[in-house]
Design a binder for these strands. Structure first.
Length: 121
DNA sequence: ACAGTGACAACAT
DNA sequence: TATGTTGCCACTG
């Protein structure tokens, strides 16, 4: 159905995450109908570093892992940057890069909304 | 076509 | 808790 690549679909969803909120790789995968593609979602965000200019509007810092922690292991300054970006929008990030999912988790999108988002482009 | 590579997640120790 | 292992899946060369 969608003529967009999986990566583009991921970016479309991430752009919908509200300021000051977060979600997980796994939940995004579920929203796209591929509940076991969490790893691919991470791959898609990692790929942003190659098209920064064209996807500068993608708030990648709002995506963390299911443990409620920033998932970037190295380079360490990359994780620090994600933490800084989140703190800049009011999200409390611990020294251990932990975030309270209970407090900041985004509700997400229903499949009907996903359908619209992937269509508008 | 195919094997290697992750910013994952679930499970097993 | 903290590691280790295994399944997953899109993307790339």
């Amino acid at each position: 159905m969608s003529t967009h690549s999986f990566n583009e679909q991921v970016y479309a969803v991430v752009r919908r995450i509200p300021h000051g909120k977060v979600t997980t790789y796994g939940r995004i995968a579920q929203m796209l109908g591929l509940p076991h593609a969490a790893r691919a979602v991470g791959y898609a965000l990692h790929a942003l570093k190659d098209n920064v200019t064209t996807h500068a509007d993608v708030p990648w810092q709002r995506v963390i892992n299911g443990q409620g922690r920033i998932s970037i292991v190295n380079p360490i300054y990359a994780a620090q940057e994600q933490a800084a970006r989140l703190r800049a929008e009011g999200v409390i990030v611990g020294e251990d890069f932990r975030i309270d999912l209970e407090a900041y988790l985004w509700e997400g999108l229903h499949w009907l909304e996903i359908d619209d988002i992937l269509r508008e482009k």
